[in-house]
Design a protein around this nucleic acid. Sequence first.
DNA 1: TCTGGGGTCCTAGGACCC
DNA 2: TCTGGGGTCCTAGGACCC
Length: 386
Amino acid sequence: MARWILHVDMDAFFAAVEQLDQPALRGQPVVVGGLGPRGVVATASYEARAFGVHSAMPIAKARMLCPHATFVPPRFARYEQVAGQVREILASYSPLVEPLSLDEAFVDLTGTERLHGPAEETAHGLHQRIRAETGLACSVGLAGNKLLAKLASEAAKPGGIHVVHEQDVEGFLSPLPVGRLWGIGPHTAKVLAERGVHTVGDLRDVDASLLCSWFGPRGGAHLWRLARGLDDSPVVPAREAKSISQEVTYPEDLVQEEVIAGEVRQLAVALAARLVEERLLATTVRVKIRWADFTTRTRQVQLPEPTDHPVLIADEAVALLDRGGLHAESGIRLLGVGLAGLVPATFRPEHLFAPSALTDALHEVRSRHGPERLTLGFPGGDRRLS
DNA sequence: TCTGGGGTCCTAGGACCC
DNA sequence: TCTGGGGTCCTAGGACCC
């Protein structure tokens, strides 16, 4: 069966929410972003974009380009609230909704025709309902897969609907610059440009074997499919986070070792609190450090067993800093701590027994009575330790 | 105008085991 | 004596996304 995938993208989301909540800002240039000396633009309203302001631009430059804009720090809790409203609307059309970020989502409309009518009508209805129920504009793309649906919503901006039918795929893709394709960033775009490939049409004309010689067998095959608008990746509703992290760029570079260790501890403790909140344990601790000259290093270590213990995590993070000579020679602008290898915190042996004592006891019983002898009861059922 | 913060995925090399 | 090949785990870095 032919698929219908819809992509919704809220227009200038953070800025639009600010304009919604503060009517005086409507029709005015608004820039949402970090207001410190090292802040960057998260979202600029269309009025601000007219002055050349765009996402990821240093706030300092945005102030030069558009000094009369209103600059506001982000209010993520509020954006989250509105995003939830939008997700609820989307969920009323299909059980398969995949949020990509706060302001974007895929909806699989395949097979929803009997309930909601043709996909194209659904797209219009959904577009209207978001406007009516949230007061915010969005752009909607509709096509046969995620790759094309996302490109279609971009073509629909601002505030429109764009449908890409199967017979129009080649004509739709050909003139687009390769960098617009999902997965082709600045680096790949540059490598392609050096080889005379600028548009998706150019890319389609490159031999598969040549692409593979440039980007390896996997990368080459991937680009070959992208150029043809081929993508069979499914719309995946909720996915578990694989890692969590927290990092800070300091207004001024840090140089004192004690201060740096203290900051890393603080980040580690905050992350441990998130673990507890989300009922997770972590097995990998990472630190990230960025010097004044922007060189960046990471170090990571595996823990002997999963934990959410703040002191343990903080100790490991600080130890990682010392290992591999991550010191403050030239001043440090960013510190980060990350946790990975996340597992549900349904069972935490370290709180019942000292870990080594537990392990020893298990060995003891097994060696005497055989491996089948010992099982432990879990809150979620009866799983055998191995 | 010096370049955020939250993530995901891929690659490459080394250790280690069989 | 100077030689293997595959599989898996771990670490570090980097590209990419919003």
